[in-house]
Nucleic acid binder design. Structure first.
Length: 416
RNA sequence: GGUCGCGUGGCCGAGUGGCUAGGCAGAGGUCUGCAAAACCUCGUACAGCGGUUCGAAUCCGCUCGCGACCUCCA
């Protein structure tokens, strides 16, 4: 097979770049996983399938991929960084469970659903609570750099100080001055020196369920820190691809870059990839709006908005019929179309597998047919090489399918 | 308000200057028992206005509409 020049869109540069791993043939990829306090919904399916496709395609091209996707089981607050409640702990109180029971339960359902969507497991799936010492070490390193400060047992990242040495906002295209003036309400600044500062470590109140001892007292890590801790531990301080949903671009990924630079004096990732959102009636499907449909509801059809059940592979196909950087709108019509399209592809695959490939086969392909088949295959590869354009690739697959079916029909006729 | 992005036929969804995207749905046919599968043919597009060009869905400008992020969200 001829060499592929894979191009991928790098959010950092806002353009498609030639993919060149730091240390080929190895590729390190980190993707932000779920916060496990509820069932996975359609929106969670998209990054899982998107980066599964990246993983599979890179592997197919001969790269050796180490794919790390975390489980966030602590530190992800509801509401404002200062006032919010831990999402896991909140759910635990609600259901009268240990926080880790909540995390375990939804980690299990997440795994179940991801397996149904036919995604490969990550090479490593670290948990935030399993990396508290690493996170504390990072906080100390950032403090030593003079880029963080301690207040009442909490540690905050000093964005202004950081911005004097580095550029805060380069991933999301934000300018610090605008962020400062644009900060809307005065609530939530609290003990922070500046509203743009973010928590590295939070002091835990006595009623707080999940807390660990630290040099600053009992507390828990800030949300952004876990990804820096786990990615650098398993992929090194600079790795190839960092992925996640577009909604994590700011502040989460921006903060990861800041933390990485503060500790290691380099950007954590060479390429940043962001999948776009799934929408419903044109609006983002998400927890906050409550307009989400869980994957299990899709698989069983048990949701008021669903006219029928859709198989996991229909969902996977549906997601892949759009380029990952486009929004994708949910509707029953769209899913039904996906269901039939997927079935058609699988039928074609069955035919291909049943075909006889022995040299003396009665199937005599003429040069033109061979050329057409090869052209479709090449085109499909070209689409994949162009920033994983699965929508285009699938289109070419259908062209290929048509050819194969024609040849198959001809084979039947000549055999009879 | 700031930053960014989007608007393609009944429904999805590609495509960045000229060369059929594709799928689903619809109409007709191969098929003269029914159904399924497959194949062939067909129609309906590029938000609006103006500009650049021999030529624009594709470039430029304006208008309208929509969304994302700026707070937790994949």
């Amino acid at each position: 097979m001829k060499a592929h020049q894979l191009k991928l869109y790098n959010t950092l540069s806002r353009q498609k770049e030639d993919f060149a791993p730091i240390n080929p043939p190895f590729v390190g990829m980190y993707v932000c996983g779920p916060t496990v306090y509820g069932d996975a919904h359609l929106g969670h399916g998209r990054p899982a399938i998107t980066f599964d496709t990246v993983n599979r395609y890179l592997t197919h091209l001969g790269y050796r991929v180490r794919y790390v996707r975390n489980i966030t089981d602590v530190g992800h607050l509801t509401g404002d960084a200062d006032e919010g409640e831990d999402k896991i702990a909140k759910k635990a109180k609600l259901e009268q469970l240990e926080p880790m029971e909540v995390a375990q339960q939804y980690t299990d359902t997440y795994h179940r659903d991801m397996a149904l969507l036919n995604t490969w497991k990550p090479s490593i799936e670290p948990r935030a609570t399993g990396h508290i010492p690493e996170q504390i070490a990072l906080v100390e390193a950032i403090l030593n750099e003079g880029l963080a400060y301690v207040v009442n047992g909490s540690v905050y990242f000093d964005v202004l100080a950081y911005n004097k040495r580095y550029t805060y906002g380069k991933l999301s295209g934000r300018v610090l001055d605008d962020l400062m003036t644009g900060s809307r309400d005065l609530d939530g600044q609290g003990e922070k020196r500046n509203a743009v500062d973010f928590a590295l470590w939070k002091n835990a109140s006595s009623e707080h369920l999940m807390k660990w001892p630290s040099p600053w007292g009992l507390g828990f890590p800030g949300w952004h820190l876990e990804c820096t801790a786990m990615s650098s531990k398993y992929l090194g301080t600079q790795f190839d691809i960092h992925g996640g949903g577009m909604d994590l671009l700011f502040p989460h990924h921006e903060c990861e870059i800041a933390q990485g630079n503060a500790c290691n004096h380099r950007d954590p990732a060479k390429y940043w990839m962001h999948n776009n959102m799934i929408t419903i009636n044109g609006q983002k499907m998400g927890k906050s709006l409550g307009n989400f449909i869980t994957l299990q509801e899709l698989f069983t059809g048990k949701h008021p908005l669903l006219e029928q059940a859709y198989s996991p592979m229909t969902i996977r196909y549906f997601i892949l019929t759009a380029q990952y950087r486009s929004t994708l709108d949910f509707s029953n019509d769209a899913l039904r179309a996906a269901q039939k399209g997927y079935k058609k592809i699988i039928n074609g695959l069955r035919i291909v597998r049943s075909m006889d490939y022995t040299p003396n086969s009665e199937i005599a392909l003429d040069g033109e047919q061979v050329q057409q088949v090869e052209a479709s295959i090449t085109a499909a590869y070209r689409a994949m090489d162009d920033d994983f354009n699965t929508a285009m690739a699938i289109g070419h697959l259908f062209n290929l399918l048509k050819k194969i079916n024609s040849i198959f029909t001809g084979q039947l006729q000549s055999a009879s």
